[in-house]
Each structure stands twice: as C-alpha cells, then as structure tokens.
C-alpha cells in the first residue's frame, strides 16, 4: 500500500470541501525516531512531523481536487503556498485535515486548509495549523511532456479510502 497519511474521509461536499482524519498511534514506527532523544540525552518526545501533516493535507486536498473531474486528471502537488503549524500532535491524538477548494481551472487548482487536533482527554478539536496548496493537472502542463495514460496518481489505496467512506459514486463514471 502506498504511503497513506489519512485514515478515512469524514466529510465531503462535492467540489467544495473535504475533511479527513488521521489517528496517531504509538505503534507507528516514525514516533520512535521522531524524536528518540537519545543523542541529546533527552527523554523521547514522539511528535508528528510537520512535513507529514503537509502530506496528509495534500492527500485530502488532492482527492478533493481529483474528484471534481472524477479522477480523470493526474493531480499532483505543485506548490506548498503556506504552512503554519502552531502546536505539536502526539500519539493518542487525532488530526483532522479540512481542505477547501479555492480556485480551479484546466491547468490546476488551489486549496486552503486547516489542521485540527483532537485531544481525547477533553474531546475538543483545536485548530493547530493552516496549509495552503497548489495542484497541477499533469497532462495539462505547459512543457509539452507526455505521461502514461494510466492514472498512477489515484491508485487503489485512494479508492479504498473513498469506498470505506461510502463515496464509491465518485469514481462510478470514471472512464
């Protein structure tokens, strides 16, 4: 399975917005390295790397953008316009990526996003970051390069996530 950094889709409004969650678990290997503290003689401090929050938002927003054309376009992350992460997220907490489609045309799309963190101790979702992205439609690129016809961006793992969220209809009319 490809590197998926969202677990499931929790809200979807066609062409408008999408929300996905990611549960953070201590059994995930990355938390044992990030940070293990050993080198600096510090206690371990397992926190979610900000770069992976960007990936989580890119997957959420990328599905939102791809769904507009029912996954016929190869949607690739082209630019990270803005990233602000105010607080850490740790194992036992849940992240929610809330992506909104800002602008879209034949060449690509821009999205705005908010990252929220659920602390299960108090049950409150707090905003901990904002991530704005730009996606490009690979086959509409201006360089005149061509890519394989097969849509390698949206593979089975993306479909699996949409199916489990009851969104099968989004690729029903896929050609």
């Amino acid at each position: 399975m490809r590197w998926m950094w969202i677990d499931t889709v929790t809200a979807f409004e066609d062409g408008v917005r999408m929300e996905a969650v990611k549960n953070l678990s201590l059994s995930e290997e990355l938390f044992h390295d990030h940070f293990d503290g050993e080198e600096d003689g510090l206690p371990p401090e397992p926190v979610m790397p900000g770069s992976l929050m960007v990936e989580g938002m890119a997957q959420t927003a990328g599905i939102l953008v791809g769904s507009v054309n029912r996954f016929r376009e190869k949607v690739v992350l082209a630019k990270v316009s803005k990233v602000e992460i105010d607080e850490d997220a740790a194992p036992g907490q849940t992240l929610r990526y809330e992506a909104e489609l800002e602008r879209m045309d034949a060449v690509g799309a821009s999205t705005r996003g908010v990252v929220r963190r659920l602390d299960h101790a108090d049950g409150v979702w707090r905003e901990i970051g904002r991530i704005d992205l730009i996606f490009s439609h690979l086959d509409q690129n201006t360089g005149g390069r061509t890519f394989p016809e097969h849509n390698f961006v949206f593979g089975d793992n993306f479909k699996q996530i949409l199916v489990s969220a009851g969104l099968d209809r989004l690729f029903d009319d896929e050609s």
Partner: peptide
C-alpha cells in the same frame, strides 16, 4: 517558476 504563474493568476483573479 512555471507553477507560480498559476498561483499569480489565481491570486490576481481574487
């Protein structure tokens, strides 16, 4: 860079 032109277009539109 090339992708910035898309970004600039979107932002000017807004």
């Amino acid at each position: 860079e090339s992708i910035d032109f898309l970004d600039i277009s979107f932002k000017l539109e807004q």
